[in-house]
Design a protein around this nucleic acid. Structure first.
Lengths: 224, 224
DNA sequence: AGCGAATTCACCATTATTGGTTATTGACGT
DNA sequence: ACGTCAATAACCAATAATGGTGAATTCGCT
């Protein structure tokens, strides 16, 4: 590790557990370049707390009374899109972790993972990373891959290759006319293909077709 | 060998490295309920090899000459949608692992993770799980969360809460009429909202709107 | 040789979507 | 109190999408 002249990171924490707050406070007080700007036992005044302290990183307990950490992340994402949030979770709950990922949290750390590594996670999340303990990563990904079955829907629908071409363009938001010109076929041929596609997918509008296709194609969609 | 409580799992392996093939062969020969039905150093005859051996699980090296493991998974997915594929990767390459996830592989194991655990992974993948070593999980997830920035597009578009309601239904494939009845507002109000949405998103059709929304909302879409 | 499926194209009628304009109401902030 | 804006709603006109039917061509499979 190199000696660095970095700006001191201002950190703010929300956790209803006094012990957690104290142990992290202690940890941060002995850490260079980091400073616990404030800590709170609830997210009641979330926005004003953030406004008042202007932190660089937020540490957020995932499970709190009244406003949960997940709700809090959603609120933060709306107001402060750039502010990194590190989720702290005391138990291994797949769904909650997945939910907070979806809410827009940046990192996920198990409380029992050892507080030493927390410093590193804070650094990572501040520099734009998505740190998480391996156990958490595994859990999120398990949730993620559970969706795999639906991924194969469009094979199951037995679309012909031309029908796939058309559907792909439809999903990209092209009109019949545009598809016709993209594929160098007539408008009526596009119409014909789409009729067939709708029949196979059991839908009857662009919106439904796109929606159904995407749920079977999430992963590919990630690449556009 | 056939009269056991559990059926013996027939396993087929593709790996260009002779040492890997031999060590896995050895491992499986000493494992009850598992049997290496065949192993090959390339995927040249992938389909016919599978047809000939009728395996329960495929172990596939991610990096092979000619046809890569990723290509092979795609081919398998088209022909044998239900056949579990466990990817074996000798190095930590984020993109390749992510690609094979997208291609439809079911599990991901680092070669150096220790061959003992391979047995467990084979079992898991065969019973419908998505096993992966923590390091792999972390890497996939890192790739995954890199996409986060685009997730916030629709905040950037500054949609009102009602507009978001409408857009969400549009994305689900609902028609103007359905949206009107879902939200208990008139058809013309829906029309009004959609006009505004299109203006804000800079699009002019359902397809485009859905497409643009999804690239900014991939994670939420996971829930339909 | 013939069947079926994919791909191509066309015509017709109905319904949906889109864009323009206008207007009322209530909420929020200065 | 005034202006802004979200949410609601309506009317009109043009364009797009949908569904039904039919049909020619090509290609693979039997």
């Amino acid at each position: 590790m190199n000696l660095q002249e970095k700006k001191t990171l201002r950190i703010i924490m929300f956790d209803d557990n006094i012990n957690v707050r104290e142990s992290i406070a202690l940890l941060l007080s002995t850490t260079e370049n980091m400073q616990l700007a404030a800590s709170f036992d609830s997210c009641k005044n979330l926005i004003s707390d953030i406004d008042a302290t202007n932190p660089d990183v937020v540490i957020m307990d995932i499970d709190m009374p009244n406003i949960t950490g997940i709700e809090a992340v959603k609120i933060l994402r709306a107001k402060f899109p750039q502010l990194p949030v590190l989720m702290l979770t005391g138990f291994e709950d797949d769904e909650k972790v997945f939910d907070s990922l979806c809410a827009g949290a940046n990192g996920y750390v198990l409380k029992n993972a050892g507080m030493e590594s927390l410093i590193q996670y804070i650094d990572e999340v501040h520099s734009g990373g998505a740190p998480m303990t391996p156990v958490i990563a595994r859990k999120v990904l398990t949730q993620f891959t559970k969706l795999q079955p639906s991924r194969m829907l469009n094979q199951a629908y037995n679309l012909s290759s031309r029908e796939k071409d058309v559907l792909q363009l439809l999903v990209k938001g092209r009109s019949y006319k545009m598809i016709a010109s993209d594929l160098n076929i007539s408008y009526e041929t596009v119409h014909s293909h789409i009729r067939k596609i709708y029949q196979k997918l059991q839908v009857n509008s662009v919106g439904e077709a796109v929606s159904k296709t995407i749920s079977g194609n999430i992963l590919k969609v990630l690449f556009f």
